[in-house]
Design a protein around this nucleic acid. Structure first.
Length: 459
RNA sequence: GUGGCUAUAGCUCAGUCGGUAGAGCGCCUGGUUGUGGUCCAGGAGGUCGCCGGUUCAAGCCCGGUUAGCCACCCCA
């Protein structure tokens, strides 16, 4: 078979990259659990009609079909299935399905692959891992969760700084602020205005103003107000005063705006105390998705803003609804693959090795392989990951075998002397070359060499 | 889905005016007395993405196709 080429958009890491990814996943899971989120996993597929609820994204859903199914005949009795393209839709379905057995407010984390039929690009994949946290309430959900959730993410991402992940900025806004402001101005197509404002970074304020006038029917005065709102950002409650003053100057103060501002203030003030500098109120954050109703979040890696958001989400008053009960939620999702791919490609983070092995036991000749296996067993019994050399090649080659894999120690079983008595074993640290007598029943590697570690690159 | 660019050794890339293919790195072997990395010598490895056309002759020119990259859309 000819050598296959990688499939674009379906990332696969080499073993040392996987070590980095698994470390990231472990830190995220640990942080989520520290905050009381329960882990769940949902199936990879959902009925297509469920998946299409999210509108625009529907074009990107991969549908599932048996190879032998007749394309003309609809699947008898079965609903058409598609791979989930996020973890929110499956979670909403899960909540409805298990509403009677769950305790609300329900806090869950979920780390799984998702699939989107997109055109791949750096940091944009067709198969990737998301790590979600959500809190969902029955009927109501207190606002303070909108403060808590981004702070959990700030803590999780902050914990990753130890391995070389750059600082993050969690940009926050509140739909009620935007909607209240626009309506106060007399602009009723809130979604339309948000979509235009969302283009600010890409096409600039002048072009957005033109679009607002041309597409949304705004007056130049209204467009100017929208841009002024979008220009507001900051890390403390002064942004609230700025917005209020701005609204007052256009006589656009509404109850909804005031509600939103109170919420935004609570978030900014709590963040200033618990995660100073991380959470930034940014009134131009729009988020295209229309189901957000309160706080919205986007997260960028400082110095890697072009990568896009690595962690986004928001509040949705109707995460799930069975017609009788509604379940409001708030959640955020980390794009683990997007984050990890940048950590690896920009050489920000490295693993000390791609294999778990701390010690390679050399084999002098095939007759004495048993002695090497005995050493390996003794070390493993004490929790040390060990491999035995594949062939009784020259010791130079066996050392090379270890070196290529990043295995720090090579163990030489003692050779029988003239008297037939086996001499002492020796262990060599192949980084320093230091070689000393050692006993497999007692020797231990330095703690930092026991398992692969993940650390900032270039140290 | 729309547009632009690219495709030569495992990797990164040269290849002039069309004249049968190159470097660096990596890999393998050796430099005798079980011990790697440096150094030296040697070696393996390519249907120039694929199909067709022009030409005496195509890696190079033309058409198609596939894949990849980038931007848009959208988003993690």
């Amino acid at each position: 078979m000819a050598r296959p080429n990688p499939l674009s958009g379906f990332p696969e890491w080499l073993p040392d990259g996987r070590v980095v990814e698994q470390h990231v996943l472990k830190v995220l899971q640990h942080t989520f659990e520290l905050h009381g989120f329960a882990g769940i996993e949902t199936r990879a597929v959902e009925p297509l009609d469920q998946l299409l609820r999210k509108g625009e994204t529907s074009k990107e859903v991969y549908v599932l079909r048996r190879l032998q199914a007749d394309p003309e005949e609809p699947e008898a009795g079965d609903k058409q299935l598609g791979l989930h393209f996020d973890l929110t839709v499956p979670f909403a379905r899960y909540v409805l399905e298990n509403a009677g057995r769950l305790a609300f407010p329900f806090k869950r984390y979920q780390i799984q692959k998702v699939w989107r039929g997109e055109r791949p690009q750096e940091g944009r994949f067709r198969e990737f891992v998301q790590a979600d946290i959500d809190v969902v309430g029955a009927g109501e959900l207190p606002y303070h969760y909108e403060v808590e959730l981004p702070l959990v993410m700030a803590e999780a991402l902050g914990a990753l700084r130890a391995i070389g992940v750059p600082e993050v900025r969690i940009l926050v806004n509140n739909r009620k602020v935007a909607e209240g402001f626009y309506r106060g101005l007399g602009l009723d197509d809130v979604e339309g205005v948000l979509r235009q404002v969302d283009k600010l970074d890409k096409i600039g304020p002048d072009a957005v103003a033109e679009l607002l006038v041309a597409e949304q029917g705004a007056t130049p005065e209204q467009a100017k107000a929208c841009l002024e709102l979008a220009a507001v950002s900051g890390t403390d409650a002064s942004v609230v005063e700025q917005v209020r003053a701005l609204a007052a100057s256009y006589d656009a103060v509404t109850d909804l705006l005031e509600t939103g501002l109170a919420e935004l203030r609570a978030l900014v003030e709590a963040a200033a105390q618990r995660a100073p500098g991380v959470v930034v109120a940014d009134l131009k954050i729009a988020r295209g998705l229309d189901y957000y109703t309160g706080s919205v979040y986007e997260t960028v890696l400082v110095g890697h803003e072009q990568l896009g958001s690595i962690c986004s989400g928001g509040r949705y008053d109707t995460l799930a609804s069975d017609g009788k009960n509604t379940y409001p939620g708030v959640g955020l999702s980390i794009g683990v693959s997007r984050l990890v791919s940048r950590l690896l490609s920009a050489n920000l983070v490295t693993a000390t090795r791609g294999v778990p092995t701390a010690v390679l036991v050399a084999v002098a000749d095939e007759e004495s392989r048993g002695a090497s296996d005995d050493v390996a067993a003794a070390l493993r019994a004490r929790g040390i990951p060990v491999d035995v050399a594949p062939t009784a090649a020259k010791f130079g080659k066996q050392i090379k075998y270890a070196d290529r894999r990043g295995i720090p120690f090579v163990w030489f079983p003692g050779a029988p002397g003239e008297d037939g008595v086996r001499g002492p074993d020796q262990v060599k640290d192949i980084r320093s070359g230091a070689q000393v007598d050692a006993d497999a029943a007692a020797w231990e590697p330095p703690a930092e060499d026991l398992w692969p570690r993940v650390m900032p690159a270039g140290e």
